[in-house]
Amino acid sequence: MAFYERIDGERFLATEDTRGPWDAGAQHAGPPAALLGRAVEERAGARPDMRIARITFDILRPVPLGVVSVRVRELRLGRSTEVVEAELEPAGAGQPAVVARALRVRVAGDGVVPAVAEGPRLPPPGSLAPSPFYAVPWERGYHTAMEMRFAEGGFTEPGPGACWMRMRVPLVAGEPVGALDRVLVAADSGNGISAAVDFRRFVFVNSDLTVHLHRHPAGEWVGVQARTSVDPAGIGLADSVLHDEKGPLGRGAQSLFVAPRP
């Protein structure tokens, strides 16, 4: 049980655990985002004194289940910052489905810079009951591979929400789960957690995701505290504060296409 099985250095088999709630043949965007983030961090020659401060994913088309390839290239390498691009391409597609561009920043070292208050914490996940996902017409998918506990709102309650999320399966079978994996698998759920309109009557699809991290994540749980704003023209923004149990650690943002269901 894992989101992916590694075939070789570049290719992975996406399992049923990656399946999203809207299309039985398509992945939720969280697992591909995490796979690209890992590729950026673990590429050959990556400097251990740098970590991702910002990563943006352009979701160009749905990502099907099956074999995908991940490729990384360095756009700029500097003393204190570097920019790295990664692409995820489904087998036989001939073009990428998701393109990521990451800014990595050199870590100065603990205690070098004074800490600044990060904002209020969410209630700890241990104090909350598990939250069911809304009805999905297939048994296995992202909705079963993730454990969820709402601190505010719910999937079927329109409006702002806050949800703790934890991976039940590793990102890649037989490989350790990284802190960045946990954040990126969860961050794409902000628009679902804070749905501003009824998902039974409207679609609200994100074609991108940007994650900023000012602190390295810790622990298994990631909190997504989200709010969605929608213009009458049908353009929306899901804005999320990302947490671990120590407090806020960054932000996520998703641009939304909102329209009545056909």
Results as ranks from 00 to 15, higher is better:
30 G>R: 01
38 R>M: 03
36 L>S: 13
142 Y>K: 03
156 T>R: 13
231 D>A: 15
124 P>Y: 06
31 P>M: 03
120 P>Q: 09
62 P>A: 04
12 F>A: 12
165 M>S: 09
13 L>E: 04
100 A>S: 06
135 A>N: 10
253 A>E: 09
27 Q>L: 05
109 G>D: 04
231 D>S: 15
147 E>C: 04
124 P>S: 09
126 G>L: 03
228 T>H: 07
203 V>I: 13
54 R>I: 03
58 D>N: 15
217 P>N: 04
117 A>L: 13
118 E>C: 08
80 S>N: 15
4 Y>N: 05
250 G>L: 00
19 R>L: 01
136 V>M: 12
99 V>I: 10
245 E>Y: 01
174 G>H: 09
40 V>R: 09
228 T>V: 15
147 E>S: 11
236 G>M: 04
165 M>G: 05
3 F>D: 02
242 L>H: 04
181 D>W: 00
122 L>R: 06
237 L>N: 09
91 A>K: 14
137 P>L: 03
168 R>Y: 08
209 L>M: 09
83 V>H: 13
169 V>Y: 09
205 V>H: 03
4 Y>S: 08
117 A>I: 07
111 G>Q: 06
205 V>C: 05
6 R>C: 13
205 V>L: 11
66 G>W: 04
175 E>N: 08
12 F>Q: 03
20 G>V: 01
194 S>E: 01
182 R>K: 15
259 A>S: 14
239 D>N: 10
